[in-house]
Design a protein around this nucleic acid. Structure first.
Lengths: 209, 209
DNA sequence: ACGATACGAGACGGTACCGTATCGAAATCT
DNA sequence: AGATTTCGATACGGTACCGTCTCGTATCGT
């Protein structure tokens, strides 16, 4: 069930008792509960997860090769689906993307899961790469695509690097939701952010340099 | 020598052999070396640090209460001093602050220390709070002060929340240097960022909404 | 019914680390 | 010289986890 495992299309002739999906959920949710309770990922162990989930150790090893593979699935199970873009304008699309980011930040705040897992997963470069490919990269591609269309439609300056614009748009929200946990994520922040960025920080009456 | 330890002003009547500062540096640099080599912080242990530094375990316990306290000092020793602000304009001050952030990001890249420690320290709320108070909060105050002066001098719109502006200015650089390790931090990024933000992302010919 | 597999529980030997204590040697002050 | 503390090294008992394996039981297809 790991992310890296490619499910072979040929139907295996399953015999004997099938694996319980309920048990699978119990393991993942048990891990999440531990993380919610503030247990640092360094102190997590297969044995402790098994105890929390009320499960035998072998049952976990039957499904995942180790701690790391399990975490990828835990994180993936907390990732909300990508939002649908209205497509009416670049501005509206960006607002929707940022709003999804804000809501995820709020969810992280209450559950405190990603704030732990996200941050810890980078210690294992292999797993981080898998997560990056599966979650982060597609999301970044989506954002860049929105910006590219915005340039075509004249909503965005064409004299600035798109990668830089991407970080300008999403960096502030990422900083708030991931880096300082005590920041506010108020309603309407997404619109406020996009409109401020489009308009610029300079006072309208200010002379150009 | 921990951050939390308040050095009492009264000079202790030191007798016997004094503690070696060279040993102290060896411990901190040994820890940094391990982190540079990609050893995840979860796998660090006092015993391993002592081995790497060529030091007895007791010598470490004589100075720090445990792993966590040691890390705070390790991180602090890698923090460069705050840059001096030119004070000629808000724009120039922001560029200097962002340039310092960029250089720190590059240093992190090559040394790979903060990228490990920084991220892991959040698992210990107590230590994270200490680090936040000692390093992050003053830096944020400095940035906010620069922005406040900018508003007074007419370089910055007055109709936007300063906290939001702070994240708009520093969020992109923080995202690049901390969140995705494969991003570029080219020369001139600080100026490019500030000027783009001041001017806005909208094309100059675009009609106001 | 029967064979196959999954289940919870836990035994098993092994590894690594914890934090303390003790050793003789070295360094420093009075 | 003598007292005192630090030094590296290492022994110590204790804890937690690793990954495998083996129980007896439960649950499935045939």
């Amino acid at each position: 069930m790991s992310l890296t495992e490619s499910h072979p299309p040929q139907e295996a002739p399953v015999r004997g008792r099938p694996r319980s999906e309920a048990v699978e959920r119990a393991i993942i949710e048990g891990t999440m509960k531990l993380l919610e309770d503030g247990v640092p990922l360094a102190e997590l162990s297969i044995e402790r997860i098994a105890r929390t989930a009320g499960v035998g150790k072998a049952t976990i090893y039957r499904r995942w090769r180790g701690k790391e593979e399990l975490f990828v699935d835990v994180v993936r199970s907390t990732e909300p689906p990508d939002p649908e873009l209205p497509g009416t304008s670049m501005r509206d699309d960006l607002v929707v993307l940022l709003e999804a980011l804000r809501r995820r930040g709020l969810a992280n705040r209450t559950s405190a899961i990603l704030h732990n897992v996200h941050v810890q997963m980078k210690t294992s470069p292999r797993i981080w790469a898998a997560y990056h490919n599966a979650v982060i990269a597609p999301r970044r591609r989506l954002g860049l695509e929105v910006l590219r269309r915005g340039q075509q439609d004249g909503e965005l300056r064409t004299d600035v690097d798109l990668e830089l614009v991407h970080d300008i748009v999403f960096g502030p929200m990422l900083t708030r939701s991931l880096l300082h946990p005590d920041a506010e994520l108020p309603e309407g922040l997404a619109e406020q952010l996009v409109d401020t960025l489009l308009e610029g920080l300079r006072p309208v009456s200010s002379p150009m340099v």
